[in-house]
Design a protein around this nucleic acid. Structure first.
Ligand SMILES: NC(=O)c1ccc[n+]([C@@H]2O[C@H](COP(=O)([O-])OP(=O)(O)OC[C@H]3O[C@@H](n4cnc5c(N)ncnc54)[C@H](O)[C@@H]3O)[C@@H](O)[C@H]2O)c1
Ligand SMILES: NC(=O)c1ccc[n+]([C@@H]2O[C@H](COP(=O)([O-])OP(=O)(O)OC[C@H]3O[C@@H](n4cnc5c(N)ncnc54)[C@H](O)[C@@H]3O)[C@@H](O)[C@H]2O)c1
Lengths: 213, 213
DNA sequence: CTGAGCTTGTGAATTGATTCACAAAGTAGT
DNA sequence: ACTACTTTGTGAATCAATTCACAAGCTCAG
């Protein structure tokens, strides 16, 4: 199968969220146009995105909402539970650990780790904060799929390497640094400072930069 | 001036962070190659990105770190203070309000708003949580540049429209919905669920999807 | 001052993503 | 069964971003 662009996968995620919403509101079928309107794109883009994975619609009618929802879930790998650990029980790590939106979508937070003795042993939401030194023992046993990295930026690279050493293959990195890791490790970055700076640029150069989201 | 790609602006942000770091460590000049290595890209890309804005380097030598840092700040509009308000004093809003990394980079959080009577009036870090109903009065007076939107997804569209009505022109949206707003409003999204789903896709389809960050 | 060795800046080439445009396939009304 | 109307799926065309490749500029050693 052809390599799928990152931007396509992102859009599928957006379509999926709107589809789920539509299904719970009793919508039966949905057109590429409607999907585009809500996803902030064009109908041709929607059809092209979906066409990479198959043919889901009926001409003259649109896409069956429930079936397409299921198909997108499959495509995105959301037809299973993902085991997630959070590394760094600080401000942002705490917010993420307590956020129920993730569990709802199949991302099950199984453990939280920190290096600070004052935090280790404290509980939220039924999760006890563990000592980061236990990560090398726990990961091979509990086999988490994804680590969410919310440690201070200076620590991020070193901690990421430890995680990889322990067997982690997917990392969601919140530290504003570019991690250097072996090629078989999948990393995604959430860089809020970058987004704010993007806003700053756009607001500063309104004429020249487009206003698109 | 030519329209600058979003991806370019994002990379400038990454270069800037590494440059600041280098400057504080006493580095005088830096090559496109080194910048590329740390930014996870190629040296040609770095040079092309910078060339859109001018000619900053010296052939045979590289870029003067301090000067390039200053230039990038200028380009990104970081040579001023940005006034930021946070809407929604929940889990993620609280984490952001207490994060000092933003203030450090010139994003000054001047107020936090919420709709929940139990939260209004409480304080963190010297900021008192205000009633969202005051936003229409405050914005024209205090002229914040950017609103960070951290309210529940169902509320996001309505609250965003209120903000725009009050005069806000830049929004950093954390709710996993695509906001529909007038074209002159600049919106950036931070969608963590989308990133997690991107990881899920990548881990599920390792062979077909690239491993690139 | 010269030549070896780097590194930038940038057109040209290439690769990648989006948009166009339309045949094909369906629906619905009569 | 026929007509008018929708909407998909997809090659082809266009638009955009990245990579290539190299002349030109600078440093430094001798
Ligand atoms: N808080 C935010 O709103 C925000 C916004 C953008 C980016 N970030 C980034 O997210 C990261 C965390 O930010 P934060 O505000 O939560 O910081 P924080 O200081 O509140 O939390 C960091 C936590 O990591 C722990 N830690 C330190 N070293 C560790 C190690 N080796 N192993 C395990 N745990 C360790 C600390 O004990 C602390 O609990 C930083 O990189 C920051 O730049 C945060
Ligand atoms: N917490 C996370 O880690 C996380 C992660 C990803 C996305 N998000 C998204 O961020 C948003 C906020 O999440 P959260 O976990 O902080 O939720 P939360 O419920 O903890 O906080 C939301 C806050 O918004 C306030 N609010 C509600 N309606 C309002 C209104 N009309 N005006 C002003 N304030 C209002 C609520 O009183 C509450 O304090 C949601 O859209 C969520 O999907 C959160």
């Amino acid at each position: 199968m052809k390599r799928i662009a990152d931007s396509t996968v992102r859009r599928l995620s957006v379509y999926l969220r709107f589809l789920e919403d539509s299904v719970t509101h009793g919508v039966r079928t949905i057109s590429s146009q409607e999907l585009a309107r809500r996803g902030g794109t064009t109908s041709a883009q929607v059809r092209k995105d979906l066409s990479f994975f198959g043919s889901f619609g009926k001409r003259g009618l649109g896409y069956p909402a429930a079936e397409l929802t299921a198909s997108l879930r499959d495509i995105l790998g959301l037809d299973r539970e993902w085991r997630v650990i959070i590394i760094g029980a600080g401000k942002i790590g705490t917010a993420l650990a307590q956020y129920h939106g993730f569990r709802q979508r199949g991302f099950d937070i199984i453990a939280v780790y920190d290096a600070d003795a004052r935090k280790i042993g404290s509980k939220w939401d039924g999760l006890v904060v563990r000592d980061i030194r236990e990560v090398e023992r726990d990961v091979p046993q509990e086999l988490p799929d994804i680590a969410v990295l919310t440690v201070p930026s200076e620590e991020a690279q070193a901690v990421a390497e430890r995680l990889v050493g322990a067997g982690i293959e997917g990392i969601l990195n919140f530290a504003p640094v570019q991690l250097k890791l072996p090629a078989h490790i999948t990393v995604r970055n959430v860089n809020m400072a970058m987004e704010l700076e993007g806003l700053s640029y756009a607001l500063t150069n309104r004429e020249r930069s487009g206003e698109a989201q």
